[in-house]
Amino acid sequence: MTLRGRVHRYGDNVDTDVIIPGRYCNLTEAKDLAAHCLEDLDPGFVKRVQPGDLLVAGENFGCGSSREVAPITIKAAGVCAVVAKSFARIFFRNSINIGLPIFECPAAADEAETGDELEVEVETGKVRNRTKGKEYQAAPLPPEVRQIVEAGGLIEYVKRRVAAKPA
């Protein structure tokens, strides 16, 4: 599967409080959360984002709280993938678990600018910046993590495990 869209570029340490502020963490529906995506970092983001756009950021994307509504909000806002130099660990797990494609690719993240057209091949981790005419390789997911992605997320994976258990 190839994902393609325009880039919204941000810096290092984009934390979960700016992705979805605590005051909205009493919302449980994805569409309600999406209305506040990145509100405290870039209040105009929600108006500008188009379905299929990508977030590109620096180091430690998603640091801070364990709130799973952070990747849920990004996905519900229409973002198809996040490419960053690195991800905070809880955000990384949460994204895998809820099915938000994320790619650790420092070179692509460094060189991409807001408005660039970026393309990501999900299976291979190939990242292409079509505006700049450059290609990059994202870090591969560990095989154990790929199993979860291939099962369709953690809950699908757990369903199989529970079904296999003797009653």
Binding site: E68, R93, E144, V158
Partner: peptide, 20 residues
């Protein structure tokens, strides 16, 4: 260590988790 909600759900069901 801290986790998100889907990991929490899986942990409640299985009593184990994967970790690096």
């Amino acid at each position: 260590t801290g986790v998100g909600s889907t990991d929490l759900a899986a942990a409640l069901a299985l009593g184990e988790w994967w970790m690096r």
